[in-house]
Amino acid sequence: MEWRVIGLEAHDAKTNMGIDEAVLEAVRDGHSLPTIRFYTWKPSAVSIGRFQSMRDEVNVDKCEELGIDRIRRITGGGAVYHDEHGEVTYSIIGKEGLFSNGIRESYAEVCGWIIAGLATIGISAAFSPINDITVNGKKISGNAQTRRDGVLLQHGTILYDLDVKRMFSVLNVSKEKISDKMIKNVEERVTRVLDYVDVTQDGLYEALMRGFVKGKNFSFGKLEGREEKRASELAARVYGSDEWNFSR
């Protein structure tokens, strides 16, 4: 099976989510090859899981004050602060038959590609079910998957750097909890690539690329015209709308 790889691009939140869904539709309809995408979020953004409440999870006023996007993903899972310079995000989109059968097994399979990529820069990571990757027991990557019309979409982030105070300013944690103790607690539970290796954000992307394409027949490509058009539609009508983002 041949894969299409779309190299690292920076987009705003609604465009990133619009592209992922547009590619899912194109793969479903047989117009596009299974696809691996890498991207960052510009401006920085908070994404919430498909089944979370925006008002419960996100300090919407603070996001607006700081110019940070907030968006509901098509996938489940938790709220994530995507710092423009603090992480690399990927998505993989292909027909379900390309992946291990069970949901849990397919998480393990795709997370294995991330682990392989991190290994190329000397980071020894492990899969932590249901959907995390850890280094020395601390979370370095969160991943979320949906399946629709026979197509599997999984996206996730690999933490490169972390500004805990900024993260807490946009996620809805009560002020009492944003104490030194809480910040210390997060630093004990979460880790980042820069804690282990002196590499640039681009260097991390290149490492992940190596892990994702290993053993695959692939070629670099870009979005087809129909995908770009559909992604713009989805960004405007769905992902840019309060009806979607505040649906719960």
Binding site: R50, F51, Q52, D56, G76, A79, Q145, R147
Partner: peptide, 11 residues
């Protein structure tokens, strides 16, 4: 209304 960071298939 049920919300959270869980997963449901299909949506």
């Amino acid at each position: 209304e049920i919300t959270g960071d869980f997963f449901v298939y299909p949506d």
